[in-house]
Write a protein that binds this DNA or RNA. Structure first.
Length: 878
RNA sequence: GGAGCGGUAGCCUAAUGGUAAGGCAGCGGUCUUAAAAACCGACGUACAUCCUCGCAGGUGUUUGCGGGUUCGAGUCCCGCCCGCUCCGCCA
């Protein structure tokens, strides 16, 4: 063992050995409990960033721990390899996307391997491999056969920069989720997955995830799926056979309706205005609103606009005539594309009615039970209170009125209760090159025909020119497009769309269970062994995208008979981001730290620099930290230790150079104390001495241990217990590391005592051995390289990965004498030392006899004494 | 507008209703020709107050602010203030 720790050479040694020994490869083993530890697959952007380090360090710590606890741990890794960067590079510099991606995988894999992660690399999967995406196509065809997929001409979100379509979810906020370009709308024929058929299940099954998933993520998904209970109500159009059905969650407010409002794209508009004098004006206005909606301006700031169609509808509850309007704030995609306007009960209707002077009527009381005259209303009151002026349903609580009025509408045949969801069907086709080809053929005679299974995969052609205008690059590849129809053998065209990359990430962790299967996506029995994922770890940005799609896909696979699961992920951890301070110069934008002078001015122009903002690391803001550069400085172990120690896994962390140095110094400190003892420990006779955690050690039987020996042993058991409980319960890895530091400090204190006594006695040796063993073992999940090296240097022949987690003994962890706080009237006045098994009466006596307590009580009567065993005594005086 | 998370000493982070813990930085010492590293030690803050001015020491208050429940509150309840994240013309 060297006197000083050199991380680079030790890390290289163990990374090579783990690889040579295939130390982390696993197979199904029904005799052992399994644990599936999964981190989200890496997107092949080209470079690892510190977020990867954080993500993988959490997962690796857990995988190590579970392995040492005897679990058969599946810890695989793979690549989300289809995507935009490859295609962007191709369009910009003519790089081959395939080569770009393979290079990115090679480079990133090298980076990740430098981190010494305990992956089973034999199960590595890349979504751009035909052997993988073949099964995307297979799933696609199975779903098509069962009517789970369909095509429709739909206004799709279109990113004008990347020339790709985006799902509604990906276009949230009106900008492309990856490049932030404002999204425009465009009509295209698209493939859709009927995820809405599963909306109810996706929502209801969230209940099963309570406890294992963060409440925040569950809430986000609930809101995203957005179920609302309401009713469809049909209004007859006056002097016509036509009718308009609206969706409302507030049928109890129908007596307050002052208009029916249609979405600009509503199909009935043309018939309504036919033959009326305002026909042309209305149609032109509707067109304008429709265009504005499609172009997707900033909706929140949009002024409400509408026009009267000249048509009237009959309120079925009171036969009142309501004008039919068209307005820009009603969306064709949601509900029925038509609403009833209730200005006193809905703020949007309120603003609209004020603008166009539509009449108001009060239909419910305020929360305080008052009735405000409509002309005095300053805003809509959306509370559910008590109805008023609503015919025979007046004076009822809103909820009850809702139920009764829905029942009445059903009875009369003009309404029925209805559930709508905010969730919409998932557009899964893209007009792009670098993705899984849609395995469909368009034949003039036979229609849309799936490619026969035997012909899968439909391989993405190589050498395609991506700098084409409009449509998909594949449209311009005749040898790909022109194909014989599988049914009639006549000339036909392949579908040239590719699949959304979220299809790839839906089921990759099922594939890990059986990655080389070439007859099925996976063997069901292997999946039955490994799934569900016991712990999934990834960024919170996927809380509603990937994590809804993959839950959906699991249910689809279940309904296809492939798996027996409802939910694929038992526990989910959404990790925080790693942030760092940014420096912004008014002239030169984002500066690197070395461009900022000591007095916080720009070294280029001398202007004052805005500092102090801690933001998510990003290349564009020049505040990113390159993991490889950090590994060169202090090694992978120190880097991993830093990101885990910086805060709880789910919280954002701030990068700090000094704390990174601190992590390295801590490891050096551990190394020094182990170095000091390693020869003695290695020379001990391992056959005759027992191991840490065993009650029956020689020292345990020895009742005459010195104080420093007892303390060391006790602290060791306490700390093992604390760390073990932390792993089992909450995964607060930062506090585990804190505990390891305490154990290290305790070893130094112990060592000093030993020095003072003139060197180690036999019990000293055994106690030091146990404590050092426990420390090394418990370091393994956090800093595996240095732990393995120290383990070897202390005389062990086998890898730590084959070694058990240290046990603890509750009896040995117990303090012999404990400090008990003594309060007088709740204020801390004194502390007394008593035996750990002192009775309540003993504690009471000790407290009342304490001089400081007597002084504080100052002769007043003792009214009550509260004794909390082992903790404190509170003397209540009057 | 809706939902969620958070505010603990210079900084970061712990604390089943029961002694506010640990780390970092900074400070003093040992070692050294010196520095670094290492090791050892003390260490939250401000105000008020006692004591002989100060120093040191003692005491009280102090977990964003204000109330409440309790023998006892960082923790539970109510009301504010501040920060962050996600969502939203969703009828």
């Amino acid at each position: 063992m060297k006197e000083k720790y050199f991380p680079q050479e030790v890390e290289e040694k163990w990374q090579k050995r783990w690889a040579d020994e295939r130390a982390f490869e696993v197979t199904e083993d029904p005799s052992r409990p399994k644990f599936y530890c999964l981190e989200m697959l890496a997107y092949t952007s080209g470079r690892a960033h510190i977020g990867h380090v954080s993500n993988f360090s959490i997962g690796d710590a857990l995988a190590w721990y579970k392995r040492m606890r005897g679990f058969n741990v599946l810890h695989p890794f793979g690549w989300d390899a289809f995507g935009q960067p490859a295609e962007t590079a191709a369009i910009k510099d003519g790089t081959d996307p395939e080569k770009f991606t393979r290079d990115a995988i090679d480079y990133m894999k090298w980076q990740f391997q430098k981190m010494g992660l305990s992956y089973d690399w034999s199960r590595e999967v890349a979504s751009c491999d035909p052997e993988y995406y073949k099964w995307n196509q297979w799933f696609f065809i199975r779903m098509f056969e069962r009517g789970m997929l369909y095509r429709k001409l739909a206004p799709v979100n279109w990113c004008p920069k990347e020339n790709i379509s985006l799902s509604n979810e990906q276009a949230s906020g009106g900008v492309c989720w990856r490049c932030d370009t404002p999204v425009i709308q465009k009509e295209l024929m698209q493939w859709f997955a009927r995820i809405t058929d599963y909306a109810g299940q996706l929502l209801d099954d969230l209940d099963k995830l309570e406890g294992g998933w963060a409440e925040r993520v569950i809430t986000m998904q609930r809101n995203w799926i957005g179920r609302s209970y309401g009713a469809h109500v049909t209004f007859q159009v006056a002097d016509s056979d036509e009718s308009i059905t609206v969706f409302t969650t507030r049928i109890d407010t129908i007596f307050g309706a002052n208009a029916i409002i249609l979405a600009p794209a509503h199909p009935l508009i043309e018939k309504l205005v036919e033959g009326k004098p305002q026909r042309d004006e209305v149609l032109a206005f509707a067109e304008k609103l429709k265009r504005e909606q499609l172009s997707g301006g900033v909706i929140e700031e949009m002024e409400k606009e509408g026009i009267f169609t000249g048509g009237w509808a009959i309120n079925p509850f009171n036969t009142e005539r309501l004008p039919i309007w068209i307005a820009n704030f009603v969306l064709i995609q949601y509900g029925t594309g038509a609403i009833m306007a209730v200005p006193s009960g809905d703020q949007r209707d309120f603003e609209f009615s004020r603008k166009y002077n539509l009449p108001f009527r009060q239909i419910k009381l305020t929360a305080e039970g008052r009735e405000i005259p409509p002309d005095q209303l300053e805003a809509a009151d959306e509370e559910r209170t008590t109805t008023v002026n609503t015919g025979e349903w007046s004076g009822l609580p809103s909820e009850e009125a809702n139920r009764r009025m829905t029942a009445y509408a059903e009875g009369q045949g003009f309404g029925r209760s209805a559930i709508t969801y905010k969730l919409r069907d998932w557009g899964i086709s893209r007009q792009r090159y670098w993705g899984t080809p849609v395995p469909m053929v368009h034949c003039d005679g036979c229609g849309i025909v799936p490619v026969p299974d035997a012909q899968l995969p439909v391989v993405l052609p190589a050498g395609v020119n991506l700098r084409v205008e409009g449509g998909s690059p594949l449209d311009h590849v005749p040898q790909f497009v022109n194909v014989a129809c599988p049914q009639c053998k006549g000339p036909a065209r392949r579908d040239t769309d590719t699949m959304d990359t979220f299809v790839d990430s839906n089921w990759y962790y099922f594939r890990y269970c059986d990655p080389h299967n070439d007859t099925a996506p996976f063997a069901s029995e292997k999946v039955a062994y490994w799934l569900p994922v016991d712990q999934y770890i990834g960024g919170s940005e996927h809380a509603v995208l990937h994590l809804i799609y993959t839950r959906y896909w699991t249910k689809v696979m279940r309904d296809l008979g492939l798996v027996k699961l409802d939910e694929p992920v038992a526990r989910l951890l959404t990790q925080g981001m790693v942030c760092k301070e940014t420096y912004r110069c008014p002239e030169h934008e984002w500066l690197y730290p070395e461009q900022v002078t000591a007095d916080k001015t720009c070294s280029i122009c001398g202007k004052s620099v805005e500092t102090g903002r801690v933001e998510k690391m990003s290349k564009s803001k020049n505040n990113a930290v390159d993991p490889i550069e950090m590994i060169k400085i202090h090694g992978a172990d120190a880097l991993r230790l830093f990101v885990l120690f910086a805060g709880p896994p789910e919280k954002d962390k701030e990068w700090s150079d000094t704390a990174f140095d601190g992590a390295s110094r801590y490891l050096q400190r551990v190394w020094r104390i182990v170095f000091k003892w390693h020869r003695e420990i290695a020379n001990m006779n391992w056959e005759q001495t027992s191991r840490a955690g065993s009650v029956e050690t020689a020292t345990a039987r020895d009742g005459v241990l010195a104080e420093h020996q007892k303390t060391m042993r006790r602290r060791m058991h306490q700390i093992i217990r604390a760390i073990t409980e932390n792993f089992e319960e909450r995964l607060r890895l930062n506090t585990c590391i804190s505990s390891l530091m305490e154990l290290t400090n305790e070893l130094y204190t112990f060592d000093q005592a030993v020095e003072k006594n003139g060197g180690p006695s036999y019990p000293d040796l055994e106690i030091a051995r146990d404590a050092i063993e426990a420390l090394i073992k418990m370091l393994a999940p956090f800093t595996p390289h240095i732990a393995e090296e120290m383990w070897e240097c202390t005389g062990h022949g086998t890898s730590l990965s084959k070694t058990d987690w240290p046990g603890f003994d509750a009896d040995l962890a117990r303090e012999e004498t404990i400090e008990v706080a003594v309060q007088v009237n709740g204020k801390l006045r004194s502390r007394v030392f008593v035996s750990a098994n002192a009775s309540e009466a003993d504690l009471r006596e000790a407290a009342l006899g304490d001089e400081k307590v007597k002084a504080a009580a100052a002769g007043r009567d003792v009214a009550k004494v509260i004794v909390v065993p082992r903790k404190l005594v509170n003397v209540v005086v009057k």
